[in-house]
Write a protein that binds this DNA or RNA. Structure first.
Length: 574
RNA sequence: GGGCGUGUGGCCUAGCCUGGAUAAGGCACCGGCCUUCUAAGUCGGUAAUCGCGGGUUCGAAUCCCGCCACGUCCGCCA
């Protein structure tokens, strides 16, 4: 158990003893008060009626009923709150011990012995990832890291559309369009080279019904299992998918498993889904096509029909998605999907179908709002996009300029290039993850390349400062005397470091990756205050000096671990 | 028309789930701090009817209802 949990538990036990006489069944919830009012607080407002006292008097009563011990040094009643002060020496001692012992695993929670599948990205392999879609892998990958730290066995999955209309359009374009008609991309990666075929094929489809038919024919053959068509489609999208993987890899994202939609056609599980859905009382037929009526499930609007089988007998994306989710439910205890907000209805339809089919595990969905451009929503089809590769390059370029401006005389070219890479990638991931998913983002280059204030260089710089101090000491083993770390900046820093495990728990429970970003920023900020107030290397008291070194090392560990949760590197110098 | 989400100083964001003690940061702007561990830092200042209107409550940015604005969806697309 981590120090903060221990304190909280201890206080709750003490409170339980004192509160027993009021016979209320109110849950004892201890909260963290605003600055300088203690470390934990118990609000007396909801208990006051049971005690037949004013909250202010009740707080005084409770405060006088609890005795101090080695952990609680002061109990204060103030305005209806009982405020608890934790012994700083004790907290410092146990916190530093915990961090220095656990190192890379500090913050990680107890193993849960539960498997979670996190599905994210799942982009159609018809072109490069763009910045709108980039929110998906970044949120997804950060959740993967958070859930791992929270003690889950995690597998990340990319649901690969190798059956639908989108890949069929791409394949048709590649086989029927003259390469000379395709606008050239400067980027040599296959995804950038092929996307033009997709775009032009889309235009042709809109103006020419024969093209629409040809593409429909491809989709139908795919579903019938025609080997030539399957091979042709695979050959068309495989290089594009490869390009997508390369882009992901540049921003430290690796996806464990790619699950093709076709798998659920081939193993007939989609057929089973169709048969079972047909048996439900909500199923209706219309011109040989089948749908579920969604009206009874609270879905209203212009159409409440959820079609799962076309009149030509082929399935739809959502139908295959149901089969996929049933399969996932068999392989995990917890399912999480990261989806764009445009998938809300489809996701609800799938959810209803899964319930009708008595699926054991239903997915928990993290929806994110779109990243749009000042001129409107990003669209691959219309070519109105900022590609992820483009943004990665710009971020690194910008970071390089900044390093050069500051360190050109001290560092070699390759050192500067290396730092620019770490800062640039971090900048990209941080600027996206620091905003809660449901908030929409208007993409501007100025914001995306933000290096000031609440941005990654601030945090990485704090880490580099810590490393710089440590590199100038010859300490092998970190010894400390926690009674000497009494400066307010030292105490605030220790408390901040002690909070880290709670942050992981919160971020995991709420699927809220942005709170890790907030925590990192605060931690870097508190460390900078310590850096200002408490000189380390020039401290003459040898024991205080080594205690501060231990604190710096602990901070370095926490910053590193928290950055790692966001998939961002912690440079040792910058 | 209906569903879902968002609305917090000039701009961007946290807090909302689980109501509580002076609404917290960043950018921009103004004024300080480098003979001391990298100033990508730090200290101070100006700046908010928490979209609008009701309600619940001792107490509402937070919960409930209505309205407005923006986003998104309501395809035998994915």
């Amino acid at each position: 158990m981590y120090p903060f949990d221990q304190c909280k538990k201890e206080i709750t036990i003490e409170l339980q003893k004192v509160l027993a006489k009021y016979h209320s069944n109110i849950e004892i919830r201890v909260e963290i008060p605003p600055n300088n009012m203690g470390d934990f607080a118990f609000p007396c407002f909801s208990l006051a009626p049971y005690a037949k006292k004013s909250p202010i008097d009740l707080a005084k009563d409770i405060a006088s009923g609890i005795s101090k011990n080695k952990l609680i040094t002061k109990i204060d009643a103030k305005g209806g709150y009982v405020n608890f002060f934790i012994d700083n020496t004790y907290l410092t001692s146990v916190t530093l011990k915990s961090i220095l012992e656990k190192k890379d695993t500090y913050g990680c929670l107890q193993k849960k012995k539960k498997k979670v599948i996190i599905e994210h990205t799942s982009a159609n392999p018809n072109g490069p990832l763009h910045v709108g879609r980039a929110r998906n892998p970044i949120i997804g990958d950060t959740l993967v890291r958070i859930f791992k730290a929270a003690g889950y066995d995690v597998e990340s999955q990319f649901y690969l559309d190798d059956m639908g209309k989108q890949v069929a359009i791409l394949a048709w374009g590649i086989h029927n369009l003259d390469g000379k008609q395709i606008p050239l991309s400067e980027n040599k990666k296959a995804d950038h080279q092929k996307v033009g075929f997709y775009q032009i094929a889309n235009e042709r489809m809109e103006s020419d019904e024969k093209v629409t038919e040809a593409i429909g024919e491809i989709v139908k053959k795919l579903e019938q299992g025609d080997h030539n068509t399957i091979d042709m489609i695979h050959a068309s999208y495989a290089p594009v998918l490869d390009g997508i993987k390369q882009s992901l890899s540049r921003i430290n994202i690796h996806i464990d498993t790619y699950i093709p939609e076709s798998a659920f056609i081939n193993d007939k599980s989609v057929d089973r889904v169709i048969n079972e859905l047909k048996q439900t009382t909500y199923c209706h037929e219309q011109d040989a096509a089948f749908y579920l009526d969604m009206e009874p499930f609270g879905i209203h609007g212009r159409s409440t029909k959820f079609f799962f089988l076309r009149s030509d007998g082929t399935t739809l994306y959502a139908t295959r998605d149901i089969a996929y989710h049933q399969w996932k439910a068999h392989h995990a205890d917890l399912l999480i999907n990261v989806l764009g907000e445009d998938h809300k209805l489809e996701s609800k339809q799938v959810q209803v179908a899964l319930e009708l089919l008595h699926t054991k595990v239903l997915p928990q969905i993290v929806f994110y709002a779109f990243v749009s451009l000042p001129e409107g929503k990003m669209s691959t089809r219309r070519g109105r996009v900022v590609y992820l590769d483009e943004l990665i390059d710009e971020c690194i370029e910008r970071a390089y300029e900044e390093v050069k401006k500051r360190r050109a005389s001290e560092l070699t070219e390759s050192q500067m290039k290396k730092i620019a890479e770490l800062v640039g990638i971090g900048c990209l991931r941080y600027n996206i993850i620091k905003i809660q998913p449901e908030k929409d983002i208007l993409f501007t280059w100025e914001e995306a390349l933000n290096f000031e204030g609440n941005a990654i260089p601030f945090i990485q710089y704090a880490h580099a400062r810590a490393c710089s101090i440590l590199s100038k000491t010859k300490v092998k083993k970190y010894t400390y005397d926690s009674t000497l770390l009494t400066h307010n900046s030292e105490i605030l820093l220790v408390k901040q470091l002690a909070r880290f495990p709670l942050v992981i728990d919160d971020a995991c429970i709420g699927c809220k990756p942005h709170i890790v970003a907030n925590y990192l920023y605060e931690t870097a900020s508190v460390f900078n205050q310590f850096y200002r107030d408490c000189p380390v290397l020039s401290e003459e008291n040898i024991i205080l000096r080594s205690s501060r070194i231990a604190l710096v090392n602990a901070t370095k560990i926490v910053l590193h671990n928290a950055l790692d949760l966001l998939g961002i590197s912690a440079p040792e110098e910058m």
